[in-house]
Design a binder for these strands. Structure first.
Length: 305
DNA sequence: ACGCCCGCCTGGACGC
DNA sequence: TGCGTCCAGGCGGGCG
């Protein structure tokens, strides 16, 4: 389940293998991957449009905000003759946005290696490697987009509403706590709101609330700011801890570009631990649906107030 | 304006 | 064994 630590692990691998390369061609094996979650009917012109837009583009680097990742591009540039004054390569205008959704993977392969049946798109690189987007459930998507300004950075247009994540310089904890304190919904739901703070998904929301000792149904507007700060700090810490070990892999659905799993599952304290004793106090971990999502918490360490 | 909930997907787990 | 049903979950859109 790719949340911030998993997407960042993937981004690092993607950057290592693709930055500085040129895209020599592309294939879209399942056009639905070009759509969004609510628009999956894609016509043939979208496929040819994607292929022609990326072919010949030069990849500057792989970037990320929250769970959104993108390759910043210089379109069709011949870098050997480019004039750095008239066409500065440090100002990309386009990006290839990739969202992994639930089950998306980006994998680096050599041409000719077996194509996994869930491979939805392939970018061929001039480094004699290819970047494959594999996605069992097609909750993810890929597409070429203009880069626009959002929260102090250039980001793909469809991610402009996504807030900064806790691991980037533009993240402003005081401003986020101020916004959070206005919310009358369950704090669990607020943590999953990517327009407030990005990168937190169901796993790290539950883990952060446990670490901060806050009940998932706590209402931010009625919670002390010091406790809201604690929740945000816990979220930042738990995602940093997870990133340090390559993220969380429950099954084969999350791996990095080289197909390797992360090791944070062994450090989870509440997520999917319902029915087992709390590591801190021994009380049985509970599971409840909150905002339509399974939420796991310790009824004693995370009392409602 | 804000909060909530559905639909999009596939495959694995479960019940009969 | 085999079929049907439910569940997992990020996100966008549409509803109230």
């Amino acid at each position: 389940m790719p949340e911030l630590p998993e997407v960042e692990s993937v981004r690092r691998g993607v950057d290592e293998w693709t930055a500085g390369t040129t895209i020599t061609g592309a294939e879209v094996l399942d056009p639905r991957i070009l759509g969004t979650t609510s628009q999956r009917r894609i016509d043939a012109s979208a496929v040819s449009g994607f292929v022609s837009a990326v072919t010949g583009a030069h990849i500057l680097k792989a970037e990320r905000r929250g769970k959104f990742m993108w390759l910043s591009l210089v379109e069709g540039a011949d870098l050997s003759t480019a004039d750095p004054v008239t066409s500065p390569v440090s100002r990309p205008e386009l990006g290839i946005l990739v969202h992994l959704g639930m089950s998306g993977q980006l994998r680096i392969h050599s041409p000719g290696e077996d194509i996994h049946r869930h491979t939805r798109a392939v970018l061929h690189l001039d480094s004699d490697r290819e970047l494959r987007f594999v996605d069992q459930r097609i909750f993810g998507h890929i597409g070429v987009q203009p880069l626009v300004h959002g929260y102090g950075r250039l980001v793909p247009a469809s991610a402009v509403h996504i807030a900064a994540d806790p691991l980037e310089p533009a993240f402003d904890p005081e401003a986020v706590v101020g916004e959070l304190a206005k919310k009358r919904t369950a704090i669990k739901a607020a943590l999953l709101d990517q327009t407030l703070v990005s990168g937190i998904g169901n796993i790290y929301a539950d883990e952060a609330l446990f670490r901060a000792g806050v009940h998932p149904l706590a209402v931010p507007a009625r919670t002390r700011k010091s406790r809201l700060v604690a929740v945000l700090e816990s979220a930042t810490k738990v995602m940093s801890d997870a990133l340090a070990v390559g993220g969380t892999s429950f099954d084969a659905l999350y791996v990095n570009v080289n197909g390797e799993s992360g090791y944070f599952e062994r450090s989870l304290t509440v997520y999917k631990k319902h029915g087992t004793p709390c590591k801190r106090c021994g009380t049985t971990i509970a599971r409840e649906k909150i905002g339509g999502r399974s939420s796991h918490f310790c009824p004693r360490c995370q009392r409602r107030r």
